[in-house]
């Protein structure tokens, strides 16, 4: 069985149907890309998987390692190994980044019945992760995302991912608004985790990121459904022909 099994998932926001029957199977160790035009439901899919309030699931199921993901609180989803890199990371004034990360790490460790890590050990790990990601240690001293540039916020998401070591990372348009250097840092962060025990759903509007994170599969989401799946070459052909042809095809 795949790590993530989405079957016939339908969801709405404020009474407006967005997802209209998504089917997707992500085997453990693979990286899949989800592409699609604006308004196709990409971010909604990410939020429904992470458990954000305000999205009601009307039909379908989501299994994570065989468990019913939709029945879990957001924090329980994090504990079983799901991580969402936000499209718009949230600012937390008054909350230091180092404290935030250690609290998160220890909450997840507690939920997994693992011992908590102390401040010294945490700092050591955090510094090592920052170094791998070519990020400044100063990041730890600042308040979470407060006063960060768009690129810094996205890199902070990748830094959190590196520390929390999820089994499944969902990257929600992490590439949007990034210059090429920041894009490479993000891609390196994902590629460094790739392996048998790490899977990712990379949601993106553009092919660009997929030059650096080469996916095992590409799915095209349109009007709340997966309308096409293929290999990495599908992303390239979309870059040339745009979504219009596919969308028309799906409507036919």
């Amino acid at each position: 069985m795949a790590l993530l099994e989405i079957r016939g998932l339908a969801a709405e926001v404020e009474g407006k149907p967005i997802l209209r029957g998504v089917d997707l199977s992500l085997p453990e160790g693979e990286v899949h890309a989800i592409m699609g035009p604006n308004g196709s439901g990409k971010s909604t899919l990410a939020y429904v998987l992470a458990g954000r309030e305000g999205y009601s699931v009307n039909a379908g199921s989501v299994r994570f390692d065989g468990e019913d993901l939709l029945a879990m609180d957001p924090e329980a989803r994090a504990a079983v190994g799901l991580f969402l890199a936000f499209q718009y990371p949230v600012e937390l004034p008054g909350v230091g980044n180092a404290n935030f990360l250690r609290t998160a790490l220890n909450a997840v460790r507690r939920a997994r019945a693992e011992p908590e890590i102390d401040a010294m050990k945490f700092l050591k790990e955090a510094r090592a992760a920052l170094k791998r990601l070519s990020m400044s240690e100063e990041m730890l001293k600042r308040n979470v995302n407060v006063g960060f540039s768009g690129g810094e916020k996205k890199r902070n998401e990748i830094f959190q991912m590196a520390l929390l070591r999820p089994r499944l990372a969902i990257l929600d348009e992490t590439d949007s608004g990034l210059d090429i250097d920041a894009l490479k840092i993000v891609a390196n962060g994902v590629n460094a985790l790739r392996g048998e025990k790490f899977s990712a759903l990379v949601i993106t509007h553009y092919q660009r990121l997929l030059d650096h994170i080469v996916p095992d599969k590409v799915h095209v989401l349109s009007e709340g459904r997966i309308v096409r799946s293929g290999g990495p070459e599908l992303a390239l052909s979309l870059e040339e022909s745009g979504y219009a042809g596919l969308v028309a095809e799906a409507a036919a």
Binding site: A78, F100, A104, A107
Partner: peptide, 27 residues
């Protein structure tokens, strides 16, 4: 409390009650 901030903390594994306490302490 800002629901976006709460969700952000929860999505990182912080239980809701603890997330609320963190945001109040920050306030």
């Amino acid at each position: 409390l800002d629901p976006n901030q709460l969700f952000y903390l929860q999505s990182r594994g912080v239980p809701k009650a603890e997330a609320r306490a963190i945001l109040v302490a920050a306030f």
